[in-house]
Write a protein that binds this DNA or RNA. Structure first.
Lengths: 145, 145
DNA sequence: GTAAACCTTGGAGTTTAATCTAAGGTCAAG
DNA sequence: CTTGACCTTAGATTAAACTCCAAGGTTTAC
C-alpha cells in the first residue's frame, strides 16, 4: 500500500501538519516523492508512525522516541554494548511506567467496583484513597492468596 | 509530617515553581499557610503530588490528571452513574496505555535478548522489526504454550 | 475552464507546562 | 546587624509539540 500525506494522516488519526513536523524532526521520512512533488508513504512508514503515536501516548517525548528508533542491532556486531545498554535503560523506564500504570489501573478498578456496592468503605472515596487502600491490601495480603 | 515548599519539592524531585504552578492550576493546594505567609504541605498533599507526577510520567496531561483527581464516590450516592462512567472511561484509557507499553516492553526485551545471541534473525534489527516479530509470534504461538 | 480538494514551502502563531526574573519579606547563624 | 538561604507575588520568557497561514501548484469532476 502507498498513501499520500492526507491519507496516512487520516488512517492514523493525526494531522498532515504533524507528519510534516515529524519529517523536520527526523522522526518519519516520507517513503518518496511522486513526480508532482507530493510525499508518499508505504506500510513501513505507516508502522513507524503508528509506533511514534503509541510511544507518545504512553509518555515518551519525541526526543526519547527518536532514541528508541535509533536502537539497531547489526548482525555483525551482535551486538555492541552501546545498543544493549541503551535498550536496557529504556526497558527499565518502560517497566517503571508499567508499574505506575498498574497502580492507577487497580485504583480505578476499585472505584468502578465500588460503584456496584463493592469493597470500598462507606466514606467518600477518591482515586488517592483507592491507591492507598490498594497499597495496604498489597502489604497485608499474602502473595498468591 | 509537614513540609515547606522547598522541602516538598526536593522530596519529590520537582521545582518549587512547579508546585506554585500546580496550585494555580487547581491541582495541588497547599495544606495551609504559616503565620509568615509561607505555604506548608502535609502528607496528604505529598501523596497527591506523588500521584500527579506519576500520572504525568505515563502520559496524562494536567487536564486529565485534574479529571482523575475529581473522581469521587460519595457514600450516599453509591454511586452516581456520572462518576462511574468517567472512571470507566479512564480505566479503558489506562488499559490501552498498558497494552501499548507491554508491546514496547516485549520488543525491547527481544532486543536486549538478541544482544547475548538470542532469537532475533541475523539481519539488522530495530525496535520496529522486533515489534513485528513479536506480533507474528503472538499470532502463531498457541496461548499458554 | 473553473471549482473543489488535494498537495507544496516557509514562516508565524498557539498551547501546555513549566521556568525565570524582579522586587521584596523572613529567619537562623556568626 | 548583615549574610545566606529560605519564602512571597506578579508577570515575562522558554521549550516542546504542534497548528495555522499565505501563496501557489496539481488533479478530478462538472
Amino acid at each position: 500500500m502507498t498513501y499520500r500525506i492526507g491519507e496516512l494522516a487520516q488512517a492514523l488519526d493525526c494531522s498532515v501538519d504533524t507528519l510534516r513536523f515529524y519529517e523536520k524532526q527526523d522522526l518519519l521520512k516520507a517513503s518518496g516523492r511522486s513526480p508532482n512533488g507530493y510525499r508518499f508513504y508505504n506500510d513501513n512508514a505507516r508502522r513507524q508512525l503508528a509506533f511514534i503515536l503509541r510511544a507518545k501516548a504512553v509518555g515518551f517525548s519525541l526526543e526519547e522516541i527518536r532514541e528508541l528508533l535509533e536502537i539497531r542491532i547489526h548482525p555483525a556486531a551482535n551486538c555492541c554494548e552501546d545498543v544493549k545498554s541503551i535498550a536496557q535503560r529504556k526497558l527499565e523506564l518502560v517497566n517503571a511506567k508499567l508499574q505506575e500504570l498498574e497502580k492507577i489501573r487497580r485504583a480505578l478498578d476499585q472505584i468502578v467496583d465500588a460503584c456496584v456496592g463493592g469493597s470500598l468503605p462507606a466514606t467518600e472515596c477518591s482515586i488517592l484513597e483507592a491507591l492507598e487502600l490498594e497499597a495496604l491490601e498489597l502489604e497485608t495480603e499474602e502473595p498468591e492468596a
